[in-house]
């Protein structure tokens, strides 16, 4: 849920000279390395080494007759696999379907609920509660909501005389159903950042707009939205990352089905590794996914100054 995307601009920029710890010169490198050692050990084991391993696996094939170097064959067969292409497409649709509506809703919630008052505080809490429950717990609830015929949604639709649908069983609807769950779960989280962004808009800007006789839409268009741009950039990247790394609900609700309709990248990797024993293809898919994540992160570094608005 929580991703840190610090303003790396600041992080990577040259820093003011740090305090010279007045020590013997030999100790200058010793102490920092000693203090970094615990972190570096874990990073080496669980961040750097796995990358090496994934790259090795991705370029090798384990057959019943042994292991051999195959170059980019695994990538070729990966992209030739219609299921993988479907997973890529699904993940793209899922990302668009979750990020767009989540952000629009989060903005609407934040605009309507910014400010004091018990009702507003209550409503903000309502929108935020889904953030606090595990994704599997949310999926357990939606299992019944989406149940065809006798589930919560279909039952109440039937009482209105409307036909329900086989929400998770129809390949045309399943991904949308999963998307709805994600929007429900995450919109409140993004609302938080936008609320903070709104707080940071100087009052003068709004007052000036009011004095100019700007209506609510104009104020939104010319004052609020431009001021929120960094917040949106930041939240958008978090939401995109979530769309790739959060697939718990797929395990509970659909297992990637029906007909691959909800197969997302991470689930595809899991399936290749755990169910098909295809280490090469799983590794190749991991490399592709990491590439996408890297591109996203680079995008966030390039675009955002970080939401100083959120301060």
């Amino acid at each position: 849920m929580t991703h840190a995307l610090p303003t790396t601009q600041a992080a990577l920029a040259a820093e003011p000279p740090a305090a010279q710890v007045r020590r013997r010169p030999g100790a200058r490198l010793l102490l920092p390395l000693a203090l970094l050692c615990p972190s570096l050990v874990f990073l080496a084991l669980f961040t750097y080494w796995p990358v090496v391993e994934v790259l090795w696996d991705a370029t090798h094939q384990v057959t019943r007759r042994g292991t051999r170097f195959v170059g980019l064959d695994n990538f070729a067969s990966l992209f030739a696999d219609p299921t993988f292409r479907r997973a890529l497409l699904n993940n793209a649709l899922y990302a668009i379907g979750t990020v767009g509506p989540s952000l629009v809703l989060a903005l609407a919630f934040a605009l309507a609920l910014n400010g004091a008052g018990r009702v507003r505080a209550l409503l903000r809490a309502v929108f935020f509660l889904p953030v606090m429950i595990p994704l599997v717990a949310a999926a357990a609830l939606f299992l019944f909501l989406f149940l065809p015929g006798i589930g919560l949604i279909d039952h109440h639709l039937a009482r209105l005389g409307l036909s329900g649908a086989n929400w998770l069983g129809d390949p045309d609807l399943a991904l949308a159903a999963i998307t709805v769950l994600t929007v429900w779960k995450n919109a409140g989280y993004y609302m938080l950042f936008i609320l903070a962004g709104l707080q940071a808009i100087p009052d003068e800007a709004r007052e000036a707009a009011l004095l100019d006789g700007a209506g609510p839409w104009q104020r939104l268009r010319y004052v609020t939205l431009p001021a929120l741009r960094p917040t949106f950039a930041f939240v958008g990247v978090i939401a995109l990352l979530n769309a790739v790394t959060q697939v718990d609900h797929v395990f509970v609700l659909t297992k990637g089905g029906p007909s691959d309709a909800t197969k997302l990248l991470l689930f595809y990797i899991y399936e290749q590794a755990a169910e098909r024993y295809d280490a090469g293809r799983a590794a190749a898919a991991t490399v592709v996914t990491l590439g996408l994540l890297a591109a996203l992160t680079a995008l966030s570094l390039g675009r955002s100054q970080g939401p100083e608005a959120a301060r």
Partner: peptide
């Protein structure tokens, strides 16, 4: 017969509910 994938529990549930 309803369209789309039907899960086992949903089938049993529909039968038990008279649907």
């Amino acid at each position: 017969h309803p369209a789309g994938e039907q899960k086992g529990p949903a089938v049993t549930g529909a039968f038990l509910a008279g649907q």
